[in-house]
């Protein structure tokens, strides 16, 4: 074994055989049986599963963003709507000249 040449680019069969003897575990048949049993109980991942796993949180995040956007839009419209519903009296006393349609709409709504 003193013949191991660290510079040798080829495999050292003697060292390889000794390594295999040293590292080979007992009961190979039992080990293989355990692996086969585990494999039988394990489902393979499919691309769809991987995509679904990846998509699920992203879809949830996208839905949350859409909901927030809708809520923000609704709030802004409600706010603008509240600001836009000035009474006819307010329009008449304001300095600016109100458009005829707005005045007419205000009067019709009042009825």
């Amino acid at each position: 074994m003193s013949g191991i040449n660290p510079f040798d680019p080829e495999r050292d069969p003697a060292l390889g055989a000794l390594l295999r003897e040293t590292l080979t575990g007992a009961d190979q048949a039992g080990f293989l049986a355990r692996v086969r049993a585990s494999v039988a109980l394990t489902r393979q991942e499919r691309t769809f599963d991987v995509l679904a796993g990846w998509l699920r949180p992203n879809i949830a995040a996208a839905a949350a963003i859409v909901l927030l956007g809708v809520a923000a839009l609704w709030y802004q419209e409600a706010k603008a709507g509240a600001a836009g519903t000035a009474t006819v009296a307010e329009l008449l006393v304001s300095d600016s000249v109100p458009a005829q349609e707005i005045l007419l709409a205000g009067l019709l709504e009042a009825r």
Binding site: M1, I4, N5, P6, D8, D12
Partner: peptide
């Protein structure tokens, strides 16, 4: 390999 040679050689 050098370390193994040193330790197995004897």
């Amino acid at each position: 390999r050098r370390a193994l040679r040193d330790q197995l050689g004897t």
